[in-house]
Write a protein that binds this DNA or RNA. Structure first.
Lengths: 140, 140
DNA sequence: CTGCATCCTTTGGGATACTG
DNA sequence: CAGTATCCCAAAGGATGCAG
């Protein structure tokens, strides 16, 4: 390969989109991983896409979404806190007796939804289940 | 919330795409994470999208893509091996003196490219850099 | 109900050195 | 060049129990 100026830190245009990336320093794929790289973050965005959910409801959604074992509150709490801190979610606490907290996507979080759409479109063909059925990969 | 049959394991249609997901058991977002959840896997798909690359070249691409520190061969080897085992990549070894191995996207790997496109489209706005600039998050 | 505190296990990632 | 072998460390994830 002679020139690969579009691969790395100072790509010009190209890649898959034809967009100008000259002002971007960090590869979006790496950034994406850092931001939603947690085990549940992507799925949290997924279940939150059509409205606010409560702490416990998010947890139960994860179980139903394919995890066998329930998410422990500590983990869920941390994921939610991370995402809130990064501005992906907003947290609203209602001052009622059985405590009630709702999490909602912020515009920053909603900006990720097109990616989610594409993931679901990909998954609708069964691609992920096919891949994970390859030999094992189902471990854990 | 009264009924949330579209969230979890047996979603009917909806979500973001309007596609029928009734036959899908595992949430695509979770599957996606399991498949390309490694730190470099997504980026590897990214740099491979327009043609085969050699082992060392992939490593260097990762550095240029935003990682500060080079990827150690052990990690890169494992990532590549994982992805090859899952059928995302194919590995071609040339019987020449300075050993030469090329990795190429398979159709299974290419099926992920629309997702990559969407990630790059998202990143082209600087979204990931904005988010990661929030307070810290740049740790490591 | 929504978390936090503590402790522990597993995994992922990294450094270094070495081989075909 | 393309890995493998060892050893190690940090982080992610989990179990349990408790508190506002």
């Amino acid at each position: 390969m002679e020139h690969d100026e579009e691969i790395g830190s100072g790509p010009a245009v190209s890649l898959l989109t034809g967009l100008d990336m000259s002002h971007i320093r960090l590869c979006p794929a790496i950034g994406f991983n850092r931001i939603v790289g947690g085990r549940y973050k992507l799925h949290i965005l997924c279940v939150l896409h059509r409205g606010p959910l409560r702490f416990g409801e998010i947890g139960r959604s994860l179980v139903k979404g394919g995890l066998g074992n329930p998410v422990t509150p500590r983990i869920l709490s941390r994921e939610l806190k991370d995402m809130t801190r990064l501005g992906l979610l907003s947290r609203k606490e209602y001052p009622v007796v059985p405590k009630k907290v709702e999490y909602t996507l912020t515009p920053r979080g909603e900006a990720l939804l097109p990616i989610l759409s594409e993931i679901i479109r990909w998954g609708a063909t069964g691609a992920h289940e096919d891949i994970l059925a390859t030999t094992n990969a189902s471990a854990e």
